[in-house]
Simulated assay, not measured.
Amino acid sequence: MKRNRIISLAAASVLALTMLAGCGNKNALKDGKYKAEYDKEDTRGWKAFTEIEVKDGKIVSANYDYVNKDGKLKSQDAEYNKAMKDKSGTSPAEYSPALGKALVDKQDPSKVDKVTGATHSSDAFKEMAKKLMDEKAKKGDQTTLKLPQTDVKK
């Protein structure tokens, strides 16, 4: 009787460890480079995108920016950056790298703080990064994730 109890306990322990190991692998990020972008430009002619790189299951780099139809990045548009900085106290040249660094540091989009003056962009980045991790990086699928743009002209 005692022998059966020991065998049952050992079998249950092995089963529990197997289940935990299997669950952990489903949530691990696969190494590679991943990109998410909106399917069209917003009302101002910019299309947001997020790129992350994963090595050894950890995010090692993250980039967030916007591109226009001419291929120009919002973070490099001096006129746009000056106007936004004057109005809100920050600019894409400042908040884009700050958001990327925060994701690398925290490894979890929900723990990334919003940047004051760039609330909409902060929210978009966090949403894109989460979907990119869940739908692509956990599966090792390096095709670009297209997300529906909600800020469109009607």
Score class of each variant (00 low, 15 high):
Arg5Pro: 11
Arg5Tyr: 15
Ile6Ser: 13
Ile7Met: 10
Ser8Met: 15
Leu9His: 09
Ala10Leu: 11
Val14Pro: 11
Ala16His: 08
Ala16Ile: 13
Met19Tyr: 13
Ala21His: 10
Cys23Thr: 08
Gly24Met: 09
Asn25Val: 14
Lys26His: 12
Lys26Gln: 13
Lys26Glu: 14
Lys30Asn: 04
Gly32His: 02
Gly32Ala: 00
Gly32Gln: 01
Tyr34Arg: 06
Lys35Phe: 08
Lys35Glu: 11
Glu37Tyr: 01
Lys40Trp: 06
Lys40Ala: 08
Glu41His: 08
Glu41Trp: 04
Glu41Pro: 09
Thr43Pro: 08
Trp46Cys: 01
Trp46Phe: 02
Lys47Arg: 10
Lys47Trp: 07
Ala48Glu: 14
Ile52Cys: 00
Lys55Gln: 07
Lys55Trp: 02
Lys55Cys: 03
Asp56Thr: 03
Asp56Leu: 01
Asp56Ile: 03
Lys58Thr: 07
Ile59Met: 09
Val60Arg: 04
Ala62Asn: 04
Asn63Gln: 10
Asn63Cys: 03
Asn63His: 11
Asp65Ile: 00
Val67Ala: 03
Val67Met: 07
Asn68Asp: 15
Lys69Trp: 07
Gly71Arg: 02
Gly71Gln: 07
Gly71Pro: 03
Lys72Ser: 05
Lys72Gly: 02
Lys72Asp: 12
Leu73Lys: 08
Lys74Arg: 14
Lys74Ser: 11
Asp77Pro: 01
Ala78Lys: 11
Ala78Tyr: 14
Ala78Glu: 14
Ala78Gly: 07
Glu79Pro: 00
Glu79Ile: 14
Tyr80Gly: 04
Asn81Glu: 13
Lys82Gly: 09
Ala83Tyr: 06
Met84Pro: 02
Met84Ser: 08
Lys85Gln: 15
Lys85Arg: 14
Asp86Leu: 13
Lys87Phe: 12
Lys87Gln: 15
Thr90Val: 06
Thr90Trp: 07
Ser91His: 03
Pro92Ser: 06
Pro92Cys: 05
Ala93Pro: 04
Tyr95Gly: 05
Ser96Asn: 15
Pro97Glu: 02
Pro97Leu: 02
Leu99His: 00
Lys101Ile: 00
Leu103Asn: 05
Leu103Ala: 10
Asp105Thr: 12
Asp105Lys: 06
Pro109Asp: 07
Ser110Ala: 12
Ser110Asp: 12
Val112Ile: 09
Asp113Gly: 04
Val115Cys: 05
Ser121Trp: 02
Ser121Lys: 03
Asp123Phe: 14
Phe125Leu: 06
Met128Phe: 02
Lys130Glu: 11
Lys130Met: 08
Lys130Thr: 12
Lys130Ser: 10
Lys131Ser: 11
